[in-house]
Every structure is written in structure tokens, then in C-alpha cells.
Write a protein that binds this DNA or RNA. Structure first.
Lengths: 224, 224
DNA sequence: TTAACTCAGATTGGATCCAATATACAATTG
DNA sequence: CAATTGTATATTGGATCCAATCTGAGTTAA
């Protein structure tokens, strides 16, 4: 017997589907911060009852992507400049350490894949494509560190700020600079220089954070 | 009018209560790893329906404290030695950085509170008391860093391994050693030596991790 | 005029009910 | 007798219904 067997036990529940869809929409900035998420409305969109929607919202809140007030509903979480700054600082610490652990373990195959992703980033024309290629580039390298817990936290912290990051890439020459920085990070990885890769990654993240904060300050300053 | 006003909007829902109770029970090791959490059973214990229970379980899963398989139920998550090792490594990285940031900002009051907590740890007679005093001691210091996001992640990572840590304190002379290490950490904080405090915290966590892994290896080795 | 009050509609929180799936055990067949 | 099939029960996933609370427009009274 030869079949493409799939593990039925891990098929997605309605809750999973709603959760992933909302998560994606928030990360990609399709849902504006502060936007109200009505259970009924979402349930109708997905052709389910409110139960899976509520369970998905619980999960999103645990991840910090939405905030809920009892009887008043759930809104897409908004981050202050200070909070964003802290998360970038956190990412710089964590991701630099993980790439330091990854470099000695990187295979030829992983390095080649990273170059492909790096080029995809440069070639991508819309923020969605940039974001995806950016994640693939970094995570592809990080995987060599063989630290699933670290990776999970990294993913979660990027989730929180990804929509702002995309805005930054759109509004400035941030994309070009990011590409240059990617090149030098990959170069350090190729040379097996873990400390240099770590230090470049740290600077890469802090750079993006600073640039983003400058934009936010300007925008929020205007809107007052 | 003089009242102790509380924000009614943030009163706990049934979901919150169930979530906190289960979280506490798992962290404190009252629920054994692998133990089945039956929705109906828990609902009866709390005099509610299964709905809040299910929502609480969703949140717990998002925190990694339980794992769920569709139609098969939810069990208290078990960690392998490798996973535990990684989480301790993660904590060492994060907590050492946070205390480095905290030291320059520590007030006299916070230092005194830390000493009180340190003594409470030494005086505590049961694992529950140790765990609590231990958290208070470390978190009290970390708070000076004014990094709520970092603290939240630290909390979450400790949640995952706390029950193992308590076992370690019970089964070895780990408590005495921990107390000595607390003393030198606090000493470095008093002196304002941030690097030393960071380095001691790092060693403190890695020490505990190594000791814990030794116990686990022995125990799991025997049980085979 | 304006501030407080009332009440209806909207929305969320929770309970109950039904459907889908898993598990254990009896029945059956070779 | 062993392996497989059928069936009953337990358990989870999801839908529907009711209760609690919020919001805002209209009303009243000082």
C-alpha cells in the first residue's frame, strides 16, 4: 500500500483556522491598531459560531496581539513608542545570541538557502513580500542553532512589531539598508565569524528600531 | 467620599479564574506532567460550564503549559531534558541582561526589599514557599530595569520549568547553594557592579539547570 | 441649556444542547 | 484462538440559546 498519509490528528480545528487568519492579518497590518474585533462579525466571515472565534481571541491575547476588556470587546493591540523600543532591544539581545550559536553549525545548504532568501527580499516589490522574505532569511539562519524555544520566542516578539516594521520598510530607504546589512551578516556567516554575525545582527535590529521610532514620532507628533 | 476603588472593568471572568488556578497548579507541580485535564471534570470543580474551561486551556496551551490533541484532550506538558536545558540557557541569557540593566537604577528601598525576600527564601520550609520567595527576590531586582516585556517573557520561561526547579531544591542541597548565590548577587547589586551581578545571575541559573538535569537523568534513567 | 436619567439595541460571557471522534470491549469469523 | 469488525460509552468540538453588561439616543428636570 502506498499512500500519501497525513496525520489526521493534527488537522486544524475551526479555532486554529480563525486564530491563524487573525494573527496573519494583525501581523501584516491589515487590521489597524485599535480596531474592534466583533465576535459575531468574524464568526460570520468564517461561517462558524462565536465559540471558535472566542477561543482564537483568547490565544491572540495571550500572545499580546489583542487586548480584551470584559463585556467591552477585543481590539487590536497598540504599542507605544517605549514598548516598541523595548521589543527591538529584546530582539537584538536574543537574535544576536541565536545567530552566534547558529554560525558554527551552518551547512552549505542553509547558507545557499539564505542567499536565495536574501535575493528574494531584494526582489520583492510589496511589503508583504519583504516581510516574508525577511523572516525566511533570518529564521533560516537561526534554525541551525537548534534552539526551538528561543526561535519560538523570537517569532512571538517579531509578531508584535512586524506591522510597524513593514511600515518602516515602506516609508524610508530602510529596505536598501536592510539589504546591505543582510549581505554583511551572510558574509560573516560564510566566514564562520560568529561574533561578527552576532554583532551585525544586533546592529541590524537596533538600526531598524531607531529608524522606525523616528517615523512613529513624526507621524504621531503630526496627528496630535 | 473615600473608598478603595477598584476597576470593575478588570474583574476576573470565569475563564480568568480557571486559567489562573490551572496555571498555578501546573507551575507548583500539583498536576503531574502527562496528567489528563478533562473539561467536564474541571468545569464541575469550578461550578461552571465547559466553555470557560476550554478558553482557559487554549491560553495555557499558548503558554506551553499544556498540549492538546484534537478530540483526544489536553495533558500537562512534559519537557525533555534537552528542552529544559534550553530554557535554562535562555533564562541565563535574558535574566543576566535584565539585572545588568537594573543595577544602576536600584533604589535603597528595592535593595532592602530584596534582602527581606532573600531571608524569606532561607527561612521558608516548604517548596511552595521557596519558589515564591525565589521569584520575589529575583523579580524584585529585575523590576528596576523597567522592562515590562522582558519581565513578562522571563516569567513565562520560569513558569515552564518552575515545577522541576522546585523538585531540585527539595532533593538536593540546592537550597543552600541558591542562598549563597543570592547573597553574592545582592552584594554585587549593593556595590553597583552591574557586570558582576549579571555574571553571577548567569552562573546561578546555569548552576541550577545543571543540578536539575543531573537529578532528572538519574530519575529517568532509573525508571526505564 | 445642560446634566442626569431611562430604555432599547448591540455586544459579550456563560450554559445547554447536538455532532464528531476516540476508546474500550463484545461479537464474529476464519 | 487470534485478528478483525461492530457497538456502546466517554470525551471533545461546535452551535444555539439565555443572561449580564455596555452604549447611545431620547427624555426629563433643575
Amino acid at each position: 500500500m502506498k499512500l500519501e498519509a497525513i496525520d489526521v490528528r493534527q488537522t486544524a480545528s475551526a479555532t486554529d483556522l480563525v486564530f491563524e487568519a487573525l494573527r496573519k492579518a494583525i501581523i501584516e497590518g491589515e487590521l489597524a491598531e485599535g480596531e474592534h474585533l466583533r465576535q459575531d462579525h468574524i464568526a460570520q466571515m468564517f461561517n462558524t459560531s462565536r465559540i471558535p472565534v472566542r477561543e482564537a481571541l483568547q490565544r491572540l491575547e495571550q500572545d499580546g496581539l489583542v487586548t480584551t476588556q470584559r463585556y467591552r470587546g477585543t481590539v487590536v493591540a497598540a504599542l507605544s513608542a517605549v514598548e516598541i523600543e523595548e521589543i527591538f532591544e529584546f530582539r537584538a539581545l536574543l537574535e544576536s545570541e541565536v545567530i552566534r550559536l547558529a554560525v558554527p553549525a551552518l551547512t552549505r545548504k542553509q547558507l545557499d538557502a539564505a542567499r536565495t532568501n536574501l535575493e528574494a527580499f531584494a526582489a520583492a516589490s510589496d511589503p508583504g513580500g519583504w516581510g516574508e522574505a525577511n523572516r525566511k532569511f533570518h529564521y533560516g539562519l537561526y534554525e541551525a542553532a537548534d534552539r526551538p524555544y528561543h526561535l519560538q520566542i523570537i517569532r512571538s516578539s517579531l509578531d508584535r512589531v512586524d506591522r510597524y516594521l513593514r511600515a518602516q520598510l515602506t516609508l524610508t530607504d530602510g529596505k536598501k539598508r536592510a539589504h546591505r546589512e543582510h549581505l554583511s551578516i551572510l558574509d560573516a556567516c560564510e566566514r564562520g565569524d560568529a561574533d561578527e554575525a552576532a554583532s551585525l545582527t544586533r546592529a541590524h535590529i537596533l538600526d531598524a528600531g531607531r529608524s522606525l521610532l523616528a517615523i512613529l514620532e513624526k507621524r504621531r507628533g503630526q496627528s496630535v
